[in-house]
């Protein structure tokens, strides 16, 4: 009798796990759809704040173009606008799925764009606490690289959220052992994420606030995000303004010759 009860319990657990996994997948799918873009432009003001409270502040314009939806690759153009002595400095990244990305840097003082090494997943993005892997995941959740598990519901900053454990699949070569994502039920936006390093230590906390609809669209976007590195105690705060999403960005701006005219 006991054996039968055990078997029933095991089967039930397996079914529940499957259901939970499916639910998680659906939630992430919805989140991916809600956050995915064809193109995006906005202004950004970001602050890198060190453990000692040293603040480094910059403003820039960002232009993002989804190059290949199926392969989750993008083109990025970032143009610094302040402080004045670095205004015009620009970075262009063309992502490729099958080879290393192409990157150029334009310094007004040089008066030409210089090709630079492609950034790696674990490299810091523009000196912030966000890595290129974090940024890619934030722009579009790479569902083919992760296993998802629904771990219940929690209220974060007043938003009722699904709590989802995302574990990378071996082929993903992620820098993390796992991530825990909190997806807002109402907007399907990510409001919080915990990043655990390979030693399973909580390394970073991502939080998104001021989530509101972009003018003239049904697309929600966080207008403030914060990434805290718990190991180094550094943090980055990013303020977004003037979002323009899916309005048909000119593809030609993502070229070396264009950034040399900036």
């Amino acid at each position: 009798m006991r054996i039968i009860i055990c078997i029933v319990c095991l089967c039930s657990s397996a079914l529940m796990y499957g259901q939970s996994s499916n639910n998680a997948f659906d939630i992430i799918k919805k989140y991916q759809e809600a956050s995915s873009i064809e193109d995006l432009q906005s202004t950004i003001r970001y602050k890198n704040i060190s453990k000692k409270g040293r603040v480094q502040e910059r403003s820039l314009e960002q232009y993002i173009f989804q190059k290949d939806a199926s392969k989750n690759t993008y083109n990025f153009l970032l143009k610094f606008v302040s402080p004045a002595d670095i205004s015009g400095t620009s970075s262009l990244t063309i992502q490729h799925s099958s080879k290393a990305d192409d990157q150029w840097l334009y310094l007004p003082a040089l008066r030409r764009a210089k090709k630079i090494s492609a950034s790696k997943k674990g490299d810091r993005f523009m000196g912030t606490e966000m890595t290129y892997e974090d940024l890619s995941n934030y722009l579009s959740e790479p569902m083919e690289d992760y296993n998802y598990q629904l771990e219940g519901e929690e209220v974060v900053e007043g938003n009722t959220c699904f709590k989802i454990l995302a574990t990378p699949l071996p082929h993903a070569k992620s820098k993390y052992k796992k991530r825990i994502l909190w997806i807002d039920k109402a907007t399907s936006q990510q409001v919080q994420a915990h990043f655990f390093n390979k030693k399973d230590i909580l390394q970073k906390i991502f939080s998104a606030k001021d989530i509101r609809k972009i003018n003239g669209t049904n697309i929600y976007r966080a207008h403030f995000i914060k990434i805290e590195n718990l190991l180094t105690k550094n943090r980055t705060e990013v303020y977004y303004e003037d979002f323009v999403i899916n309005k048909g960005l000119d593809k030609n701006i993502f070229s070396k010759s264009y950034i040399e005219t900036l």
Binding site: R54, I86, T89, L107
Partner: peptide, 13 residues
């Protein structure tokens, strides 16, 4: 601009 280039890869520390 050279310093900014350095800061893009250096940590705040």
């Amino acid at each position: 601009q050279y310093l900014m280039m350095y800061e893009l890869s250096a940590t705040p520390g």
